[in-house]
Design a protein around this nucleic acid. Structure first.
Lengths: 230, 230
DNA sequence: ACGGAAGTGGGAAGGCTGTTCCACTTGAGT
DNA sequence: ACTCAAGTGGAACAGCCTTCCCACTTCCGT
């Protein structure tokens, strides 16, 4: 034990110092299963369902991730990185307004592609370490992006980063309510919102068509997929 | 029995022909309790909790309202009437654009005042008879209101009734995510959205201040009150 | 190859939910 | 007043979730 190379990394990490090979494999299976279920059904999925999907016992899941928060934290770390990357890419755009528009669209698209991520973006957990740290880093970039877009004159002066946070919350609501019956409703929301943000004269992407009346009323009639509100 | 006056009305109604006095009282207590709980916590409240709050047995509740849908239908009938009334009042305004703005604000305020109603507006139940009928009537008025506002030149031509439905969904999402930490965040969303709807030159209400960064991040950190998403 | 420790699954316990049944109470008509 | 059906609450049931424990398996270092 003293001469081993400790292949997985530092041994001074408080928990999960060095997992056995099969345990590591199970951990990955759990993460993959959770990612799949969360993306489809949101964060409400039960721990038991994740264990079932992963093909491991409930005890295994509970030991590896003591709380749902820990699991969520591990599952969405890379998604949060993608968020930060989108902000960084937008900052690299020579046209700040175009960067801002693309960034907002990209993040909202990420929410649409992953219901769990939509929840995560607007619902953090107090103790969620890694996730929270990444989010705040991305947020700082967003503030910078907004400042530059304002300076360019294409983003209205009274728009703030909180407006974007509110948009993310709103988008989550649309995704939740529209569900699969009107999977593109969110695009309409985002386009309208960008129109509100834009200073007169700023270039705007074309407004996508709204969902058909039938699709939207089907969405309303079907209601939120699971939980019937709550 | 043959000569009784049947005080409550027609005896040919399929269900609930004529409740005994104490039963009627219990029914009212159930409705009041449900109204209270739904307004505070949304439609996710369990039937058992409603029965507990009303001080009646679970069986009584289940007999009176066989399904959650039936209960919701009865509870929100009057709220839906208020919605229809808001549309009617807006139609009576000589300035269609002002009527439209006031109506949107009023309905979103109703959502904010009653989380259950916010859910109901975007989540109908297939068999919800009375409620659904009222909603569609109100919606017809909304379409009329939109047409008039467009004709007045103050509402953009490409805005449709589906945009308003999407706004209601979005608003529900903001209320859900912002919770009590940022109880006015929805006003900002609605104001921005109206800015997007407005044709150049249309009069707009002043943009309310966004929530403080602290309040909003507290909201994000606290997360959705109950159910943790889904 | 082998022994010990790390890791495993399933079952038990305890908590929710919604539903159904049944012995008792109570209101209302005569 | 008296009676009987309408109405009641609580117990019992089935189903889900989470948590914990324990006997068994599997890996890993020597």
């Amino acid at each position: 034990m003293s001469s081993s190379a400790d292949p997985t990394g530092a041994s001074d990490r408080p928990r999960r110092r060095c997992l056995r090979a099969d345990a590591e494999r199970n951990r990955d299976r759990i993460l993959a299963a959770a990612r799949r279920l969360y993306a489809r059904d949101g964060l409400g999925v039960s721990m038991a369902a994740v264990a079932r999907e992963a093909g491991v016992g409930k005890a295994t899941l509970c030991r590896r991730f003591a709380t749902r928060e820990e699991l969520v934290d591990a599952v969405f770390a890379d998604r949060m990185d993608a968020y930060a990357a989108a902000v960084t890419a937008a900052l690299a755009d020579p046209d700040p307004w175009r960067g801002f528009v693309g960034c907002v669209q990209a993040v909202c698209a990420m929410q649409a592609a992953d219901r769990g991520f939509a929840d995560v973006l607007t619902t953090a957990f107090p103790a969620a370490g890694a996730l929270e740290e990444r989010r705040s880093r991305a947020h700082a970039g967003l503030v910078e992006l907004i400042d530059r877009a304002k300076a360019s004159g294409h983003l209205r002066d009274d728009v703030t980063d909180r407006d974007v946070v509110i948009l993310l919350m709103a988008n989550a609501g649309v995704l939740d309510a529209a569900g699969e019956a009107a999977p593109d409703a969110w695009r309409r929301l985002v386009a309208q919102m960008l129109r509100a943000y834009a200073a007169p004269g700023a270039a705007l992407p074309p407004l996508p068509d709204p969902p058909s009346p039938a699709a939207l009323s089907r969405a309303v009639l079907l209601g939120r997929t699971g939980q019937a509100a709550s």
